[in-house]
Structures are given as structure tokens and as C-alpha cells.
Design a protein around this nucleic acid. Structure first.
Length: 432
RNA sequence: UCCACGUUAGCUCAAUGGUAGAGCAUGCGGCUGUUAACCGCAGGGUUGUAGGUUCGAGUCCUACACGUGGAGCCA
């Protein structure tokens, strides 16, 4: 691959002869000039083939080459304001690597079912490439954020013997002589063990939910990052969550401008994502809903429509804390000021993107935790190791989970989670 | 699981119960600066499946299949 350069490096080679390789993104032509748009993963480059400048054979190739054929092209780099990206290539030679017959995705509109069937090819499209590059940068921002703050990566198991939150919505798999095992729906309980060992930890990996959810906000397989820190209380974890979201969003605004432009994302709303975020209690949220004339019964969990009403009342993400304990998980600590409330917090993204973070202070008193396990009718034997964390030097601790695809979807302004992951897994789709 | 909507050319969509059409893609022709290029011509159809109503069904009715969106649940 000597002397072959990438489109992203073109600026260093203006007026020089270079060779590039990639695929034909699109083609426009008149009789004596052919415009071939090359893509190589790093960008797009217009390759201009004039009839007099190349051999007849090469010109005929430029005329007949089809969408997504792979080719190698040599030419002189020119700064050219008329071309997308600011550069173009004066073609000297083209070499076909492999042709592409009847590529199914044309430059016109397609329906979602068709595109999902062609997902392995759809990821070549400009918008999908932009989304996947933003996804990559968000993942790096997440790791950087925690690494720089002394959190240690702590990988939880994916195969688990029981439900983390005791629900029955888990993917089941046979496990040798031990009977059934399940795919994890959260690494949190294991992260708590990590926090007692390392102080501050985070998990980051795929999680699985067998819920029959059929909406734009759900996947059956999705990625989640879950920090967990010893000695953190609810306020500490809220501080962490808002600093975290600000960091991710501002990093993407700075470093993935071009991709956000390709996605035609209105970034003014993202620019608002700066601390402090509004913090309202569940009680205040209910009051707000009632003031807005929205019907809502105190004690219920917030539904998608309720979340939208709340988030639309603010210009940045909003944190709702201290929910009625009956709608929250067994491991959440109760509010010492009101035993009916759980010390949990949900962060609702702006623009109606809904819950992207769910977190809480965990119950650290073994007797209360035992009570909760009984109340929720959970099999105590599976939780003995978890109870040990309270038996041997229990401390206050807190953490949260952030849904990666929901975050990507929000930052990119997508209308569905399925475009935020290379190969989405949903209730009625597990291919390609 | 429940609710709503949809299924017509490779793709995206039209078509008062009365001869099934357009754009894109493909092929051929035209054009020396195109930006989802444009212009002309051509090929391309068991209208999701099975029944029913009717002189006549893409269109109306029933069932089923598949898809899309929403609810609940959650990140």
C-alpha cells in the first residue's frame, strides 16, 4: 500500500500526484467529463476525468463504472472550492479493483424495512458513516471522562445466574449442568462489588432486555455505561451525571462538527447542555404536569408523554429525583426524610429524547435490603454475595447507567435508536 | 400483549369499482463543471396470501402473514 493516501490527508498533497483507493459513492457525467465521487471511509473526493487527459480505456472505465465498485485512482490534487470537501482530483489513471452490479441502495429515498434488510450496505451511506463516527467519539469521551477522574474500568459478567432487578424480561440460555443462565440486563450489582474494591469504577458493555418493547426508544441489545462510586450520595451522583453529559456533548460539538452538519443537526439546543442542569423532585415534576394541564396520577411512574412535557419546560437536560419507592428498584435507598421516596434520579434529555440516565443511591443497610428482597419476592440465595457487600464494611454508595444508543440518538437528532448501532437487535429483527 | 396504519415494477410512491402509471435504478443515445446533475428513448407487474361480494376488484368485505409506529416496561 505504498504511496497510497487517504482522503482525510489530501490537504498535505495539494498539487502533487497521489493514488487513493475506495468505492464509487456516486457519479455524474457529460460526454467529455466524468465526475466520480470516491469514498474511502475517511471522506469523499470528486475525481474529475476529462476526455483528453486519460487513455481511451480509462475514460471508458470512468464512463461505465457503477455505484460502489471498488477502484484505485491516481491523479493530481487540486484545491477546488466547487467540490465538496474543498479538494478534487485531476484523474490520470483509474484501476478497477472489483465491480458492483445492481447495488440496491440508490441515491433516492428508501423505506426503513428495505434499509434495515440492507443494513450491511446501508452503513456505507454518508449519514450512517457520520453517525458511526460520532458513536465512536462518544465512546471515547465516556472512557476519557471516567479515566481522567480516577474511575477504574470494571467488567461485569454478561452471563448471569439471575435477574438483576428481579424482572422476568431476560434472555435465557441453557448452561451445562447448572440449568439456565441469563444475559445480563445491567452490570450494576457487580459494579457495586467493584466500588467496594476500587473506590470508583465504571462498567461499559452490551446489555440485553427481552422486553417486547416496540418503540423508537428500545433495542433488545444495547450498550450501557455504569459508574459506581463508594461514599457517593445522591447529590454527588447528580453532580457527576451533569458534568458527564456536559463533557460528552461539548466534546462532540467541538470534535464532530462536520458529522453533525452532515446529519443537519440543529446544534443550538446542544450548546445549552452546560451545568447546572435543573433539578426537580418527583413532587415538583407532578406539580409541573398539573400546572400544564396534563393529567397525571401521583404515585405513578413518569410515562413517555409525561417526560416530554417535563423536558420541554427546560432548555437543557433535567434531573428528576426522589421518586415514589414503589415504582423504583429494590436496591434504591429510601429518603431518610420520607420513607415513601427512593433516592433515585432520572436524567431526561432535551427535545423529547426521554430518559438517558437512571441512577440512585443504593441501600447500604443490610436489614433494610433483606426486607426489600422479601417485599419484591426475590430469591435471597442469589443475592447472598450482594448482601455480603453490606456485611463486610458497608458504606454509602451511588451510581447511574447511561444508555449509549439513546445518547447517540439524542446528540445526532435521530428519530430512532436503530441507526445509533451498527446492527440493531429488535423484537422483530435479528438480521443481518 | 394491546391499539393504529400499511403491503402495487429492483427501490420510493400514484391510480372515483371500469385498459396498472410516474420518479429513481438498469440499458441505449445527447451534453466540457456536475453537486440526490440534467434531457430523450427502451425494457421492467401473479397489485402480500387465501377466500368472498360484483357483469367487472389494486380499490369493497373476511381471515391470515409480514412490516411500521404507538402504549406498557425501561437505558
Amino acid at each position: 500500500m505504498k504511496n497510497i493516501i487517504y482522503i482525510s490527508d489530501l490537504a498535505k498533497f495539494v498539487d502533487q500526484e497521489v493514488t487513493l483507493q475506495g468505492w464509487l459513492y456516486n457519479k455524474r457525467s457529460s460526454k467529455k467529463v466524468k465526475f466520480l465521487i470516491l469514498r474511502d471511509g475517511t471522506g469523499y473526493l470528486q475525481c474529475v476525468t476529462f476526455i483528453g487527459n486519460v487513455s481511451e480505456e480509462v475514460f471508458n472505465l470512468a464512463d461505465s463504472i457503477t455505484q460502489e465498485s471498488s477502484f484505485r485512482v491516481t491523479g493530481k490534487v487540486k484545491a477546488e472550492p466547487r467540490a465538496v470537501g474543498g479538494f478534487e482530483l485531476d484523474v490520470i489513471n483509474i484501476e478497477l479493483i472489483s465491480d458492483s452490479v445492481d447495488y440496491p441502495i440508490t441515491p433516492k429515498e428508501h423505506g426503513i424495512e428495505f434499509l434495515m434488510d440492507q443494513r450491511h450496505l446501508w452503513v456505507r451511506s454518508k449519514k450512517q458513516v457520520a453517525i458511526l463516527k460520532i458513536r465512536h467519539r462518544i465512546v471515547k469521551a465516556i472512557r476519557d471522562f471516567f479515566d481522567e477522574r480516577g474511575f477504574v474500568l470494571f467488567d461485569p459478567p454478561i452471563i448471569t445466574p439471575n435477574a438483576v432487578e428481579g424482572t422476568s424480561t431476560l434472555f435465557e440460555t441453557p448452561y451445562f449442568d447448572l440449568g439456565k443462565a441469563y444475559l445480563t440486563q445491567s452490570g450494576q450489582l457487580y459494579a457495586e462489588a467493584g466500588a467496594m474494591a476500587l473506590g470508583k469504577v465504571y462498567t461499559f458493555g452490551p446489555t440485553f432486555r427481552a422486553e417486547k418493547s416496540k418503540t423508537r426508544r428500545h433495542l433488545t441489545e444495547f450498550w450501557m455505561v455504569e459508574p459506581e462510586a463508594a461514599f457517593y450520595e445522591l447529590d454527588d451522583v447528580m453532580d457527576l451525571a451533569e458534568e458527564f453529559l456536559e463533557y460528552i456533548v461539548q466534546t462532540i460539538l467541538e470534535e464532530r462538527k462536520e458529522e453533525l452538519e452532515i446529519l443537519e443537526r440543529d446544534i443550538t439546543k446542544l450548546q445549552n447542555v452546560k451545568r447546572p442542569f435543573p433539578r426537580i423532585s418527583y413532587d415538583e415534576a407532578v406539580k409541573l404536569l398539573h400546572e400544564k394541564g396534563h393529567e397525571f396520577e401521583y404515585g405513578n411512574d413518569l410515562g413517555a408523554a409525561d417526560e416530554t412535557v417535563i423536558s420541554e419546560s427546560y432548555d437543557r437536560p433535567v434531573m428528576v429525583h426522589r421518586y415514589p419507592q414503589q415504582v423504583k428498584a429494590f436496591y434504591m435507598k429510601r429518603d431518610p426524610e420520607n420513607d415513601n421516596l427512593a433516592l433515585g434520579v432520572d436524567v431526561l434529555a432535551s427535545e423529547g429524547y426521554g430518559e438517558i440516565i437512571g441512577g440512585s443511591q443504593r441501600e447500604d443497610d443490610i436489614n433494610k435490603l433483606l426486607e426489600r428482597i422479601k417485599e419484591h419476592d426475590l430469591p435471597q440465595e442469589f443475592f447472598e454475595w450482594y448482601l455480603d457487600l453490606r456485611r463486610f464494611g458497608s458504606v454509602p454508595h451511588s451510581g447511574f447507567g447511561l444508555g449509549l444508543e439513546r445518547t447517540i440518538s439524542w446528540i445526532c437528532g435521530l428519530d430512532h435508536l436503530r441507526e445509533a448501532i451498527p446492527f440493531p437487535r429488535m423484537i422483530y429483527r435479528n438480521t443481518p
